[in-house]
Every structure is written in C-alpha cells, then in structure tokens.
Amino acid sequence: MSVLVFIDQTEGKIKKSSYEAATYAADTAKLLGTHAEAIVIGDSTEDLSALGQYGIQKVYHCAGADVSHLDAQVYARIVSECCTQHGATVVVFSANTSGKAIAPRVSVRLKAGLVVGAIALPETSNGFVVKKSVFSGKAFAHVAINTAVKVIAVNPNAYTITKTEGTATVESLSNSGSAGKINVVAVNKVTGEIPLSEAELVVSGGRGLKGPENWGLVTELASLLGAATACSRPVADVHWRPHHEHVGQTGLAIAPNLYIAIGISGAIQHLAGVNRSKTIVVINKDPEAPFFKAADYGIVGDAFEVVPKIITALKKLKGIS
C-alpha cells in the first residue's frame, strides 16, 4: 500500500502545483499509515531526489523522446501501470490542465473512483470522503470514493506546501507501450509573466478603468507586488486585455492569497471565479458595488487617485524610491 503522486513539469521543471500535490500525497499517506511515492514522466532538469523534501520516499522517472510531451492517453497508461505494479491505493494529481486530462483516464483504467477539485485531505473516519469545490467555488461537496483504489486531483493553491529535510530514491521506469497519437507543433508561452492559475497574488482590472491605455496602473501595482494580472469578462470581451486573463465563471477560477480588484463591480459570475481567494481587496468608486460584500478590505474611491498612492506606499515599504 502507498500513495502515488503524479508530478507535472513544464520545460523540464516541476510546477508549483505539483509540490502542493506532493505535500497532499505525503499527508494523505501519513493519515493512512503508509508512505508516498511520485511518478515523473518526461525528461527533467530537476534533482528529483529533492522531492524527498516534500515527504516523497521514492520517485519513478520515465524519461525519453516518446514521452517528451503530454499525451494523456500515454501518460495515463504509464501512471496506471506504475500504480498497479507498486500497489498504490491512492493516486494524487494537481487539478491543473494536465491533471484534468490524465486523472479521469487513470480512473477509468483502474476503475477507481475520482474526485477532481479536492481542497482538503480525505476524511477517513467513516469511509473515504474528499471535500471538493463545486458550483464554481460557491459551495463544497463531500464526496465518498467507494472503490479500493482512489484518484484525487487537488485544486491549485488549495493546499499549503510543506518543505522539510529528506531525500527520495529515484528509480527509472521505461515506457512499455507505444508512443501517443498527439503531435505538438507549437508552444506559445507568455514569457516573463506569472501563470495566473498558480499566482499567489493577483491584481485585476475591470471596466472602471475606462480603457486599455489605463492598464499601466494594474501592471505597475502587479509588478511591484510580484503579482499576476487578471481582468473581468467585459474587459476581455472588448479586447482591452487578452482572453487568458479573464477570471470568472466562464473564464479561469483562481484561489490566490491576495486578489485586488480595481474597477470591478463584482457580478455573481465574476465572484464565482475568485471567491476562493484568501484575501480580497476591492477598489471601486461605487459604494453599492456588490463586490464590497465579498471583500476583506475595501476602498470606496477613484482608482486613478487611490492606486497611485498605494503604489507609492508599496515602494516605500519595499525600500524603492
């Protein structure tokens, strides 16, 4: 018996959400009185033994050209075979784009019950129950997994990484099956920006900013904080900002530590995408803006006057004149 976690990489580097998943797996293993192992697919630039610092005892590494990019069909087969061979009873993923493509396939292969979007460790006092986010963050469901093997995908930014001492043993694994059917012809990364789904701090702008020419306020505040930038749906719809910045019900759902909303009224569809944020700051001219009801801190005022003062104060705090 063990807990197996799938470690997702981008360009050979482990994603932050995978460290969260590794910690979740290690803590689940503790809960079940067993140990946690990890599987990494694709070439890596990392020292994989360092996964021991996140509570992982052993890492299975499947490298090579035929697994150099994500093909869910191939990856799911490799993960499932590893799970069966080493007797894992729980398989953990991050609920990021890769995890959402692979985990359901593993669930079918192993006929193992699946929960996508877990936000807390399983409850094992009566069965095996996982709390997950539903209705786009507006509610939670407690879902019982009723099979011997369980598959869990943990929401990004929902579980805190713990890092201690430790070294994992690394064992290589070969891909016994055929290569996949999907060819990657291009990868277009938005370079130099923090991926929104993984960002701990997010600064977001809405229609209240009046036009794309005023976005300097948002980007300056964001770069000072080391935050990612986001926007509301109307802003993306009129192309003031790119679509991948749209957070809300039909855009991206995020859960950063800090979400600063500037000139966003807080329609229910927008709140659905951001209400899992730990601290919410709302800056809006309209005291009746519904967003204030969901906020921790609020400033009723003109963003064009308020935000520059915040920027100055931040520079002072950080010792930048």
């Binding site: 669930s107 006929k111 193992a112 019950g113 699946l114 929960v115 129950v129 539903v134 963050g137 507006k138 509610a139 939670f140 469901a141 407690h142 879902v143 019982a144 997994i145 009723n146 099979t147 209400n275 919410i280 709302v282 204030f292 009801k293 969901a294 906020a295 921790d296 801190y297 609020g298 400033i299 009723v300």
Partner: peptide, 18 residues
C-alpha cells in the same frame, strides 16, 4: 464509483474593512 455525502456553503465573510 463515488457518491455525494453532503454539501455545504462557505462561511460568510465577516464584513469588509473600509
């Protein structure tokens, strides 16, 4: 393979600090 045991709602925010 799975069943929903129960649902709950997130606790209400304690109120905005202006």
């Amino acid at each position: 393979l799975t069943s929903v045991v129960s649902f709950d709602l997130p606790p209400a925010k304690s109120g905005v600090k202006l």
